[in-house]
Write a protein that binds this DNA or RNA. Structure first.
Length: 698
DNA sequence: ACGCTCCCTG
């Protein structure tokens, strides 16, 4: 045997070598027993050549050649030979089934398996794993069960690898009881058997079972490896159990598993889900070998924890390091653009997405809908939404929330109802979106109805965000006592929720309630800057300058400072920021002149400054002057000066727009014939022809 | 031959 193979090697490695027909025949026979003797694709081709030369019509030799080609994953060569066979022998079938499977052609792999059965050939332990893998990939439980039946009849279910493949198939098809049963009946199990059943439990929500099996495997003399760890780390990520996660991290370090990409990505994800972004960045930084997935993990971690700039920085770094972004990279980074309202960057990424052919990805489309809506382009958002094939609840929610933020409550409601008609059950976020829509349009009855029925109809109990939306709904509408009652029914109302009511007290000038609400806030959240600023403004607004000053004093003593009010506008790819009374913009004087001209036209149109919103203890003339300095007006004036007539002006402001500015901008939109879109800290206002989309609720 | 990680909506 050894000598025959030696001759064969000489033949194969030296294309010029000559052999007799008898020699070749013997060699091929030897090869039939040991196809693995062929060690490269070019040797495989030499073998094929010898067969063609000496005995092209032998099904046995052809099958051998197919088998050898298959071992090198050469599907096309295998297929060419396979098609020459009238009735392929077992070896040919087995080889072609495996070859299809390793090339990811699962449908064809299964079709060949069915052909093989139909032709009366008996499959064996060498094909079942591939066939089961194909069933798992194609989510074909019925065929998988049929294959299992076949395996049992042939007595192959004791075969280790076939058993492992069965466990995996049932786990992927969420047939956990079956998967467990196969595991139990196996006579020999290896670490793959354990890992497969552990991963199956972990991914299907049987977290405790998965963890119990990790403990049990020690009793079977097996130690958790990289597969075990990357399967169970997501459990701690989901439970936000950073202590257990850290324990695993320690184990990972002790066994030197921290060099593994999968383990590293799971650790990065675990830490960021537990809001420990610093730790996930640390793990990322010491991971030398990085792939798209580890980059995605750290980028998503930053974005989900509100570190948008860091996320963008890492995204750029990834591109610089020549790591090709995948669809997940884009759906991870897009929310950063949405939150930062960096429309231009969002558009650039959108272009990149289209060039990559990712624009039909539902995750990406949903993030684009959200990004465009949050950047003020609700029509573009709607256009993208309309083009999504296979919309899921997230896509609908993004669109509904977009409409809500822009004050288009009727559209939001009809979308919500349409979603339900399409058989999609809303989750808690979708309900938050519809409540927000009602809130921004002052639709008390509709909002109340959705709120009252959510538990009964959708099986979702009101959470903080739903109470917040309802408190906001009552507050915006001026139903301050209803809001107070509702919040009081909560077991543990947060400072944030009380703050919604507090800002309504400011709008509706209810000082007594404001004091009561403020004390509630300071009880649970003494550091709440926003609430103290609001309270001081409420006092000032009421002319109670002494109390206002006292609140400011307390803030100063506590060492807290409020963020200055500011507005910004993007013109020609550059963001221009305006802070109230700040004169640093290069066109400051020109902007002032433009504002004065506008002011005259506004006064001709009947505008009277509402100085009640100026919270400084100065005379009326000065108050009027202070109003001109409001940052959103300067941003708008600058936008009008620096863009062609008719261009929509888009301004973003970090705090609520004031009543006087709201009136002024309505007039400005009419005077200059422009659509002006202003986003404040809670929603969008579309000013057009003297009207605003908010209908005076904001 | 069979097993593992990442992504969207408030």
């Amino acid at each position: 045997m050894a000598s025959t193979l030696g001759v064969l090697e000489a033949l194969l490695r030296n294309p010029g070598a000559i052999a007799t027909k008898l020699e070749v025949k013997q060699l091929l026979k030897a090869l039939l027993k040991r196809p693995g003797a062929i060690t490269s694709a070019s040797e495989a081709k030499q073998l094929h050549a010898q067969i063609l030369k000496h005995n092209p019509s032998s099904p046995l030799y052809t099958s051998t050649a197919i088998c050898v080609y298959s071992n090198f994953k050469l599907l096309n060569q295998s297929l060419l030979l396979f098609k020459t066979l009238q009735s392929p022998p077992s070896l040919a079938y087995k080889s072609i089934i495996k070859c299809y499977a390793v090339n990811g052609r699962f449908v064809e792999s299964l079709a060949s398996f069915v052909d093989m059965r139909a032709s009366g050939n008996t499959p064996d332990h060498s094909v079942f794993p591939s066939v089961l893998k194909a069933c798992a990939f194609l989510l074909d439980l019925r065929l998988g069960e049929a294959v299992h039946g076949c395996i049992i009849r042939l007595g192959m279910d004791v075969h280790l690898i076939t058993g492992n493949a069965l466990i995996n198939m049932y786990a992927k098809l969420q047939s956990l009881a079956e998967s467990e049963k196969v595991f139990e009946t196996m006579t020999t199990r290896d670490i793959i058997s354990w890992n497969t059943v552990i991963a199956g439990n972990a991914q299907n929500g049987l977290h405790e079972d998965a963890l119990a099996m990790v403990r049990e495997m020690g009793g079977a003399g097996l130690k958790p490896d990289i597969f075990t760890l990357s399967a169970i780390l997501p459990i701690f990520a989901q439970y936000v159990d950073v202590d257990k996660g850290r324990e695993i991290h320690g184990y990972v370090i002790r066994y030197g598993f921290d060099k593994d990409l999968y383990v590293a990505s799971s650790l990065i994800n675990m830490y960021s889900r537990c809001a420990r972004v610093e730790d996930s960045i640390r793990v990322f930084k010491i991971t030398r070998q990085r792939d798209t997935i580890s980059w995605n993990s750290v980028i998503a971690g930053c974005v989900q924890n509100g570190m948008f700039d860091e996320g963008l920085r890492l995204f750029r770094q990834m591109l610089k390091d020549n790591v090709i972004p995948g669809s997940v990279s884009f759906s991870s980074i897009m929310p950063a653009c949405a939150h930062l309202t960096t429309l231009n960057l969002g558009k650039q990424l959108h272009g990149y997405i289209m060039r990559c052919g990712f624009d039909d990805n539902v995750f990406i489309s949903s993030s684009l809908v959200d990004m465009y809506a949050k950047c003020g382009h609700i029509r573009t958002a709607g256009w993208i939404f309309g083009g999504i094939k296979g919309r899921d609840m997230v896509s609908w929610t993004a669109m509904i929330m977009g409409c809500a933020l822009h004050g288009y409550a009727e559209d939001a409601i009809s979308l919500f109802e349409q979603m339900k008609l399409e058989g999609i059950r809303p989750n808690h976020v979708a309900i938050t979106a519809i409540l927000t829509a009602c809130s921004h349009a002052g639709m008390i009855d509709e909002g109340r109805r959705y709120f009252d029925r959510m538990t009964e109809e959708y099986g979702i109990r009101p959470g903080l965000e739903h109470y917040a939306a309802m408190a906001d709904l009552y507050s915006r509408k001026g139903k301050l006592n209803d809001a107070y009652q509702l919040i009081s029914t909560m077991t543990t109302p947060t400072g944030t929720i009380w703050s919604l009511l507090l800002s309504a007290c400011r709008v509706h000038k209810n000082v007594d309630l404001a004091e009561k609400v403020a004390s509630k806030i300071f009880e649970v959240d003494p550091e709440n800057i926003g609430a103290r600023v609001l309270l001081s403004n409420i006092y000032a607004n009421d002319g109670r300058w002494k109390e206002a000053a006292k609140v400011r004093m307390t803030m100063r003593n506590m060492g807290i400072r409020k963020n200055p009010a500011c507005s910004w506008i993007e013109v020609k790819n550059k963001i221009h920021t305006f802070i109230a009374d700040d004169k640093s913009h290069p066109l400051h004087d020109e902007i002032n002149i433009a504002l004065c001209e506008l002011q005259e036209k506004m006064e001709l149109a009947g505008y009277v400054a509402d100085t009640s919103e100026v919270l400084h203890d100065v005379d009326d003339e000065q108050k009027k002057y202070l109003l001109y300095g409001h940052s959103e007006r300067r941003a708008i004036a600058f936008g009008i000066m620096s863009t062609p007539a008719g261009t929509t002006i888009r301004v973003i402001k970090n705090i609520r727009i004031c009543v006087d500015c709201h009136t002024a901008i309505k007039l400005i939109s009419k005077i200059v014939g422009r659509e002006i879109v202003v986003r404040d800290n809670s929603r969008f206002h579309h000013f057009r022809d003297g009207e605003c989309s908010c209908g005076e609720y904001w």
